[in-house]
Every structure is written in structure tokens, then in C-alpha cells.
Nucleic acid binder design. Structure first.
Lengths: 199, 199
DNA sequence: GTCTATAAGGGGATAGAC
DNA sequence: GTCTATCCCCTTATAGAC
């Protein structure tokens, strides 16, 4: 059990455990027994509260999609901040959130890939982003560049280190605090790099 | 069956099918029955040739890791090309390969994450890259910037669109040829952006 | 609401005929 | 080498007592 959440309701204990196990192992590799053990309860209770593994997963998945993409939408649509300020805010808030939730991007992107019609299509992310204030500002500044490039750049520079992290291994070459210190540096660097792409 | 590879040996038919199914669904979600159906043979033959699902997976996985990372190592260590030429080559060959194998990055990164000790640590990727000619050239040009930033940037700008692709959905907003055309543009753009980070 | 016991089926692996 | 039939464990889900 994570930290013996003895104060939480049973339903919330199961959700908390499910968040942890699903994001770490993915849907297919997760056993309901892993979740109930992590939650400190028994199998029957999971089905009593959530009917099935699949239904529980959908609930967690929608939460996690929201957590990954919902966080930047308000910034994208701020009406009065400049482009530069938006870029700083996106990099900064995103990296802070990802330091707390390093497994989030690989989990969400993998599961969306496994089930695009259920989780990807209804997002209409391209549409929402394309109509955002940020994209309007980009089009003014660089009318010749497809704004999708810029979107890939912001997200790629910010998210990719967290996706690639396991590759660099727990080997001596690389430890946790080094990683955190580097991505923290990137909060300042990414907006500078992105700005230089716009000149 | 993919394209009725009636000319291939049974062993190769199984590997071909395994490559396809494993990369599409991941280890945990793959059923050995999916593989043998794709290969057009029966369950017993898979075990006859490869002993177990796990052993077959290891073989495919090492191939795929090699495919994803092996491709850039020669370029990283070219002794006589300039930094700028290396960046062009990396972006170009990488994107060409990824257009042919769009599922590769998400698959490899997910599976390494699920089993870092088996697949990630022994790569010693950080070590190999840190000792490369490219990194030496970077240190000369920008001694104050941790070269890891640059590595994340090259790979992030190149790979991320392929990882994020399913998110943008098969919805009307986004189709396959649009995607290919955009990442093809990036073969030219990424080296320019990276160069501007070095000035 | 919570538990134990168990049903029902899926999925990896093998026996043994050809 | 290849096949069919089958074993048996593991996993999800439910029945039914408390």
C-alpha cells in the first residue's frame, strides 16, 4: 500500500491504487489483484464499486488525459498575455507537473494509441488547439510556418525527456536528481529556443 | 496475414508476424494466438521454434532497439563531418525511417520502461553518446550547455510527432498524408532550429 | 459494505499423431 | 516440421454468507 490511506473511503482507496498501478504498468499488464493489493482490500470490492476492470480504467484514463492536456488549454487561450509569456508559462507549468508525474505522458500516449477511437478522437485536440489564441498569435508572427510544427516543438521539447528517461537507465551515468536538475533548467531554456525559432 | 509471405520459412513467418503484432499492441496485450494467426500457422509451431512467448519477444525487442538507436550511432561518430552536417543527416535519416516505422518509438520506449534492467540499462546509451564525436563538437561550440539538453532536443523534435500522432486522432482534422508532409518538412527545419540554438 | 469461495473463460505451453 | 487436441494455471467476475 502506498502510504496506508486509512482515512480514505474504500472507493477512493481503489481509485488511488488504480491510478498508481495503471500508470506504471498500462492497462493490459495490470492485474486487478495488483490494484486490490495496493489498495489493501479484496477483489470483490473492486467489482462492487466499479463493475469491471475496464470501467475502472476508463475513469482513471479520462482523469489522466485531462491531467496531461487540460493543464495547457487555459494558457493557450489567455487573451491578453504575449506569445513569449505563454511559452514561458507552458514550459514552466508543464515541467513542474511532469516532475510530479513522470509516468503520465508515456502512459497516456500509449493507451490512446491502443484505443484511439475511445480516447483520442473525442479529444478533438487539433481542433481546440487550432482555434486557440496562441495559434492566432503564431500565425501573425510567422504566417508561413504551419503552426503544427510549433505545437510539436513545444510539446516535444517539454515532454520528450520524460518519455525517454527510462532509456538512459538507472546505470551510473544518470541519476534522479541529475534528471530533475536538467529538466528544471529547461524551464528557462525552452522558451528561449522557441523564441529563436520565431525570428 | 500481412501479405501472404508464402516464400518465407516458417521461422521467419513467425518473426515477421511477431514484429507486427508486438509493435502494435505491446508485449502484455499481445496473445500468442494473434501472432500465429497473423503468421498463418498454429500455436505449437511458435513454441517449437521459439520455446515461449517471452523468448520470441526478446528477439524482436533487441531487433527493434537496434533499429531505433543503432541508426544514429554511425552518424554521431563520423570523424570528419561538421556538426551542421551531422544534424542534417540525423534528422533526415531518422524521419525517413520513422515514416516507414511509425509505431517503433512508442513501442520501444514503453517496453524499455516496463523492463529497464533487461532492455534499458545494458544499452549504456548515455555513455556511448557522451563519448561520441558529435558531443565533442557540441562541447567545443557551446561549452556552457549540458550536451544532454541538445540530445533531448534532437530526439524530441524528431521523434515526438510520431509518438503524439494518435492523439490528434483520425478525426477530420488530420489525415495520414498531411502528417507525412509535415514531418517531411521537418527534415529541413529541425537542423535549422538546432543550429539557431547553438548561436 | 465487506468478505471467502468459486465459477467461467482466456491464454501459454505441451503431448503425441502424422 | 507440422498439426489437433488438451492440459492447467492465471485472471476476471460473481454468488452468497456475514
Amino acid at each position: 500500500m502506498a502510504k496506508d490511506n486509512i482515512d480514505l473511503s474504500t472507493e477512493e482507496k481503489i481509485k488511488e491504487a488504480a491510478r498508481k498501478v495503471f500508470t506504471q504498468k498500462g492497462y493490459a499488464a495490470t492485474r486487478t489483484r495488483d490494484i486490490v493489493q495496493e489498495a489493501g482490500i479484496n477483489l470483490a470490492l473492486l467489482n462492487y464499486y466499479f463493475r469491471s476492470k475496464e470501467k475502472l480504467f476508463e475513469i482513471i484514463m479520462f482523469e489522466k488525459v485531462q491531467q496531461l492536456f487540460g493543464i495547457i488549454l487555459p494558457i493557450l487561450n489567455e487573451p491578453s498575455t504575449t506569445l513569449e509569456v505563454k511559452l514561458q508559462k507552458i514550459a514552466s507549468t508543464y515541467i513542474d507537473m511532469l516532475i510530479q508525474n513522470p509516468d503520465l505522458p508515456l502512459f497516456v500516449l500509449s493507451e490512446i494509441r491502443n484505443n484511439p477511437e475511445q480516447f483520442g478522437d473525442k479529444l478533438q485536440l487539433t481542433k481546440v488547439i487550432n482555434e486557440s489564441v496562441l495559434i492566432k498569435q503564431l500565425k501573425e508572427k510567422k504566417p508561413d510556418l504551419n503552426p503544427l510544427h510549433f505545437l510539436f516543438n513545444i510539446l516535444g521539447l517539454t515532454i520528450f525527456p520524460f518519455i525517454a528517461k527510462p532509456v538512459f537507465g538507472a546505470a551510473q551515468t544518470f541519476n534522479e536528481e541529475m534528471f530533475v536538475s536538467i529538466v528544471n533548467e529547461r524551464k528557462k531554456l525552452i522558451p528561449i529556443w522557441l523564441a529563436s525559432m520565431l525570428t
